[in-house]
Design a protein around this nucleic acid. Structure first.
Lengths: 347, 347
DNA sequence: TTGTAAGCGTTATCAG
DNA sequence: CTGATAACGCTTACAA
């Protein structure tokens, strides 16, 4: 009796089934040319031995890990949590696993994660670096020689891009508010120099411009991050002599802080103040009144980026980089109303 | 000139640096016995060639993937999103990557994910299966021959366990509410047959029992999932002839729905109704009044489970399974007050 | 249709 | 301290 302590390998399966190594591999990989009888014997042996394929060996030899890497800033951000879940589902359907890494906006980690993706020979990666202006991150992204899709970042690199078209819908929201008599419209978002935020500011300013109004820098509240506490800042904002009568805010936990600050101030939505959020966090779904919002169709975004990546994986890095723009939609709901008749002063 | 199209390997580095294969490996793996001069040469060659370690080959040979697998039901649940982020940070500090897989409560996926963890030779796994009663999942978990930690699940298996001690703090919250005159105390949680929920129900009933009151089944609202919409059910609950004067609820998006339903009903917290949540979602941090809560110290939970897993990885599967209980704490805040003086009737 | 044998890029075990 | 050499467990030509 041989003390075979180690896990059974394809070899053990082969001897057990009385066939050759190659045949077992063919059965496992569902190659066509196998007689049903042989397949049965192999399957049987596999079950008996409780054989598990060794993914490392398979990857090494076949040069494919059947894995997709995702680098986001923070799963704690519902946008990324949802994205990740949908990606996982879609890629799983295509036989891929999905690996998630949070960069937490740390440029060094972003470099490390990218390097790790390469050394693990990911079949493809989907990334939304937090530091789209950082020189070394930019260089690293440019140099990636894996099939890659960059998600909603303005990086001038030779990679496939999926961009959300934030500005137009934000502008549309602004125009609606202005047409409803609002003038003091605040913007509460993250101040990170990153595409979504910059584009939103763009739309915000374009909205004023389209109605012949000057953009107001003093009404922009820029937080350190998308999930930073915003209560105090908004509270302060609402206590100004000429407080905003409308507010456009991030649809993360920032929205919760905004709603709480509004409530703490004794203001009613939409009577005293109108609210629009960019994105819709779960907790907002039951809010009364419903919050108007500027959203991107997540399923569409995932569909597009998945298709892009799978194509890139198929065609290799030779083909020219592609770029897909996913539209963004303004949905008007109960949280928006006309500006209060009396000019708002300190209460 | 040789058309070396392929990525450079350790071999190329060796010839380039004029040293042997083994020496390069020694440098890469930071083994002590290398002369500084040789190390420099190798490091230089690595930089010149932009050499990337092949993780698959490394894993195959060294029998360690330096990867930890996590299986949770859904990253969209803030509890898991936060847990994952902390795990990633801690394991990264120990040189491990973390792989996340969402089972979405689907038993077949749970089996598939567990099998994938084994074939990828994870160095360790942390799992919280959604189906702790499912026979095949249970069997699969029992059979896991990887270092594993099971997170807050009552599974009678030979694996390390980290359990949150939900019941006592819930009971404490109940006793406080009862002592404040509350009798109609509702429980709004998920009806999944899973440890956290069952333990909370246990604490809920124990609270009544401790004060000599009968447990009331009609005040328990069981949702299909931890993130299921709860607005309508709670709204209905609050319209009953004898509506609850206090409410204990899940600290997920369910809490948001509860707060919205209370507000929609025109009730004030804590004057008309007291609220306690199990866990504190981000959006609740700025709520006024602050929500009393029953929480587990996530950092402690992560610390314990990380330590347990690392120990298990070090010691192997020989040592007897360990079990760690992480306490849970009731924090009294402004959302709790005395029961309304007048017996609550329909408004 | 099936068997045979040569690697994939590392690490580990020896000698030197 | 360094160099040669044999695995690790699989896929994939190529032969039979």
């Amino acid at each position: 009796m041989k003390p075979k302590a180690d896990k059974p390998g394809i070899k053990d399966v082969a001897t057990r089934a009385g066939v050759s190594l190659g045949s077992v591999s063919r059965v496992i990989n569902k190659v066509e040319n196998v007689s049903p009888e042989l397949r049965q014997r192999v399957l049987h042996a596999i079950a008996e031995l409780d054989y598990r394929l060794n993914h490392a060996a398979q990857t090494l030899r076949s040069r494919s890990s059947r894995t997709i890497g995702c680098m986001f800033t923070d799963v704690t951000n519902p946008l990324y949590a949802n994205l990740y879940r949908i990606y996982e589902e879609r890629f799983r359907a295509n036989g891929y696993m999905v690996l998630l890494a949070n960069s937490l906006n740390n440029p060094e980690w972003e470099l490390e994660i990218l390097s790790m993706f390469q050394s693990r020979r990911m079949d493809g990666i989907i990334i939304a670096p937090g530091n789209e202006r950082n020189a070394s991150v930019l260089a690293a992204v440019q140099k990636i020689d894996l099939p890659a899709v960059i998600l909603d970042r303005d990086m001038n690199v030779n990679q496939d891009l999926v961009l959300f078209d934030h500005a137009p819908a934000v502008q549309q929201a602004m125009e609606h508010l202005i047409d409803q008599g609002h003038r003091e419209i605040a913007l509460v978002i993250s101040g990170t120099q990153t595409r979504p935020m910059l584009r939103r500011i763009e739309g915000y300013q374009a909205g004023f411009a389209a109605r012949g109004l000057p953009a107001r820098a003093d009404l922009q509240v820029l937080l350190p991050a998308s999930t930073a506490p915003a209560f105090d800042l908004v509270h302060e904002l609402l206590q100004r002599p000429a407080r905003p009568t409308a507010l456009l805010t991030l649809g993360t936990s920032v929205l919760a802080d905004v709603l709480n600050a509004i409530r703490a101030q004794g203001l009613r939505i939409p009577r005293d103040i109108s609210v629009v959020s960019t994105g819709e966090p779960d907790f907002a779904r039951s809010h009364q009144p419903r919050i108007s919002s500027v959203t991107v169709d997540l399923d569409a975004a995932v569909r597009e980026s998945t298709a892009l990546l799978l194509t890139r994986i198929r065609e290799g890095r030779a083909a020219a980089p592609r770029r897909v723009v996913v539209p963004t939609i303004f949905t008007l709901r109960g949280s928006c109303g006309p500006a209060p008749a009396t000019a708002p002063r300190t209460r």
